[in-house]
């Protein structure tokens, strides 16, 4: 029995780790979606966090905790710089800015020497333990629970529903949007740092536009009305390719079909508000 568990763990621990990291990324984009903004830069933020944390542990010998926090802080700072001019406007400006930003970051990773150019960074020390992931995820879930019933959570929700009305109610809409965007970038950066320290390498190819869209899909599929949606969505989308492995070459097609059906029949995502209060809000 013990042997079986050990071998199962050995086979699947990477998958389990990835579920947690993807869950964090889904939550990172949920924060911006929760105030009605679309960010396509979260893959790039994750990459910045991965490189920053890996460089700090490999080249500077920094403690893992410090490296992770720095890996979150740098993207958050960059998010402030992008967010302050673009989030003053309402509309799709953040999506446009982050789309361009993601490409700039990808090309920068490819060409800078400190990031190892196109080879990326190899031999990142294995420092991520499973309990690190549990702890970070636990803190995030606790944070989102507290946020929901606070003045800050209500302000984000109001901005999401009607930015004009929210501003007339005295809410500093730009401040909240920038804050949510930067906090999302921080989460993505920490997730990147954690990811780099169990996959042992950081490659510039992982953090492009395609993965930015994957992160968005995690959240949309799971549902963006509550923070549980993105967690469920990312878990399903991480597991699905593995569960469909028996399909061989057809698995991507089936993967796509499942997504299609969820979007058609569950437009609010797999987990919506009504999942939690079936009766409560009916008069």
């Amino acid at each position: 029995m013990g042997e079986f568990l050990a071998s199962t763990w050995y086979t699947y621990n990477t998958l389990l780790y990835t579920i947690f990291v993807n869950g964090m990324l889904a939550l990172s984009i949920y924060l911006t979606l929760a105030c009605g903004q679309l960010s396509l830069g979260n893959a790039a933020f994750m990459g910045m966090g991965a490189y920053t944390a890996a460089i700090l542990t490999m080249k500077a010998g920094a403690p893992f905790g410090i490296a992770l926090i720095a890996g979150g802080a740098l993207p958050a700072l960059v998010a402030l710089i992008i967010g302050i001019p673009t989030l003053r406007l309402s509309g799709v400006y953040l999506a446009m800015a982050t789309l361009g930003f993601g490409e700039v970051v990808r090309v920068a990773f490819l060409n800078m020497s400190i990031t190892g150019g196109s080879l990326g960074l190899n031999g990142v020390p294995a420092k991520t333990e499973f309990w690190h992931l549990l702890l970070v995820m636990g803190i995030l879930i606790y944070f989102f629970v507290k946020l929901k019933s606070s003045r800050f959570g209500r302000a984000l929700e109001a901005i999401n529903e009607d930015e004009t009305a929210a501003s007339v109610m005295g809410i500093r809409t730009t401040l909240f949007k920038v804050w949510a965007f930067a906090a999302g970038a921080f989460i993505a950066g920490v997730a990147g740092g954690l990811n780099a320290h169990f996959t042992f390498f950081v490659s510039p190819r992982e953090y492009g536009f395609e993965f930015a869209v994957d992160i968005l899909t995690f959240a949309i599929l799971g549902g963006t009305q509550t923070f549980w949606g993105p967690i469920v969505g990312s878990t399903i989308l991480t597991l699905l390719p593995e569960l469909l492995r028996f399909m061989g070459p057809y698995r991507l097609a089936l993967n796509g079909l499942i997504l299609l059906f969820v979007v058609i029949y569950l437009p609010n995502g797999i987990v919506s508000r009504d999942t939690f209060k079936k009766k409560a809000d009916r008069g």
Binding site: R151, R154, A155, E157, A158, E161, D162, T164, A165, A166, V168, M169, G170, I171, Q225, R273, D281
Partner: peptide, 25 residues
């Protein structure tokens, strides 16, 4: 403070939450 001609309440939020948003400051 003001109201709008074309009603702009926060539809998905509860009545209490709507008023609490008004009390934001």
């Amino acid at each position: 403070s003001r109201t709008f001609q074309n009603i702009r309440i926060f539809g998905e939020m509860s009545l209490l939450e709507n008023v609490l948003v008004g009390m934001h400051r």
